[in-house]
Simulated scan of single mutants.
Amino acid sequence: MNGTLLEVSGVSVTFDGFRAINNLSFAIGPAELRAIIGPNGAGKTTFMDIVTGKTRPDEGKVVWGDMAQSLLRMSEAQIARIGIGRKFQRPTVFEDQTVTENLVMALRAPRSPFAVLGWRAKPADMDRVQALATEVGLEDALPRKAGELSHGQKQWLEIAMLLAQEPKLLLVDEPAAGMTLAEREHTTRLLVDLAKTRAVVVVEHDMEFVRRLDCRVTVLHEGAVLAEGSLDHVTSNPHVIEVYLGR
């Protein structure tokens, strides 16, 4: 694997005769920010479904970490526990609970029924909650109910809840959608900072947001990698212009 955190190799999957992923191969490093772009139907969501165990491919390998573990042999829960977190486009937080309560519920802790019943947050847990809120810019919102937060703040809270699980890879789906300009700028800084200590893969349609991320870009088309490199490199590729940019 040699410096590779996630390797997807020769992966294909077909739904009712439609090949959503077609011999897909690429790799993600252990502390890397990567953007994945492509038109609707390019396979972006299916790729994330495969990595997180929601969808099983027809063929190919998905290998994780230095020990070269096969993700295809793991359940969704096992994949989450080894360090893969996924953030969907729509934030999923407990709106009737405070930011603090959301983060406490997200902390890594024993999950057996008896352990959950007896678990109580310790001072170290509350210190961790404070640190997570500060990391995403919600330190002043800890007492507020999540339902009172802006759309962007809910997105940051969900990211913090994923960070509470100490992931090595974050899959983030269209984080800039519906955000104000200030929220987008904050989200850009947050994702760039997070990628200094873990892998962050951002699936995004907004090319200006991708440009701000200033990272390696993978372009998917018809379930395969069409181009890869800097944003300027891939957007100057004639094939990318033809199938994605439309000009």
Rank of each mutant, 00 (worst) to 15 (best):
V8Q: 03
L142E: 04
L138K: 10
N102K: 05
D232Q: 11
V116M: 15
F18Q: 05
V99W: 12
G178T: 04
G229P: 08
S150D: 12
I50Y: 06
V225N: 06
L107Q: 08
L138T: 06
G3T: 04
L245G: 02
L231Q: 05
D66R: 14
G85N: 06
N40T: 10
A77Y: 11
G17Q: 03
A115E: 14
V200P: 07
R34S: 01
A227W: 07
G41E: 13
W64P: 02
D232W: 02
G43Q: 09
A20E: 06
A164M: 09
T218G: 01
A164S: 09
G137W: 14
P91A: 10
A131S: 13
T100H: 12
I28K: 06
P238M: 08
G65D: 11
V202H: 05
G147Y: 10
V63F: 07
E101D: 14
H233A: 13
E101R: 10
K87G: 05
Q97T: 08
S12V: 01
I36L: 14
V63G: 00
A68Q: 15
H186I: 02
K145E: 13
I84L: 07
P113Q: 12
T55S: 09
V116G: 00
E148M: 13
S236Q: 14
H221M: 00
A195F: 02
V217F: 05
Q165N: 06
T46F: 09
V201A: 10
T180C: 07
V172I: 15
A31K: 15
Q153R: 03
Q89P: 03
E76Q: 13
S75M: 03
V104Y: 06
G147S: 10
L162R: 07
E185I: 04
I21R: 01
V217S: 01
V240C: 02
I28N: 03
P238N: 07
T180S: 15
E208H: 13
P167T: 02
F209S: 10
L142N: 07
S9F: 02
L226D: 08
L190F: 12
V63R: 13
V136Y: 00
E76D: 06
A124P: 03
S112N: 13
D66E: 15
A176Q: 02
R216S: 06
R128C: 05
V116P: 00
T235D: 03
Q97R: 14
L103H: 09
E158F: 09
A77H: 11
D49K: 15
K122R: 15
